[in-house]
Amino acid sequence: MRNKIWFMAVVLGIVAFLAGLALAGVKGMTTPVIEKRILEKKIKPSLDKFFDGLDLENDCIEDRQVLDLGKDARGRKQVTTLFLGKKGGKAVVAALQTKAAGFGGDIEVLTAFSLDDKKILGVKTLSQSETMGLGARVSNDAEPFIQQFQGMNYSDGVEMRSNGGQVDAISGATVSSVAFTAAVIRATELVEKNVDSAAAN
């Protein structure tokens, strides 16, 4: 019986089915763990710093919303998480995670906004794989390039100085600086587009 074609197909089929089932189960178990770790280890410390002393009435990590950004050119689903901080039932601060392709891969940036006066509260690099000593300086919070975003007014948009804007690049790391700024610009656009509708609920 073990040499019959149908038997081979059945055995292989059952093994593959059980394998798929097991993997779906493990995937379902590990996804929330990964998500929770990123929120606690990467996002929370930055948000605590950006929103320090604001006495927000809600826990903006608890109340996070997932924004569907459609699909990218390759058909991958794109999502981002929006964190809103409220006071008197009204959203006053927001933070958003965006990314852009840098020199060595994607640069992921968390940008925090103050909504009333349309100011950037701060930016933080969540992950990057840029050149050591040059582009990788975006990871350093004390870097003047990172510091310059703090308090920047975004009502008229954010742009590199070479494009007539207000952002100065890290010298020698133009590609990384442009990518970082592109991620911040993307965050600005998303906040402008999504926050009013989000604040309503």
Partner: peptide, 16 residues
């Protein structure tokens, strides 16, 4: 990868 796994959102099955 791009015509089967990504549209079906099964990227985690890449290795197998």
């Amino acid at each position: 990868q791009w015509y089967v796994l990504v549209p079906l959102e099964l990227e985690y099955l890449q290795t197998i």
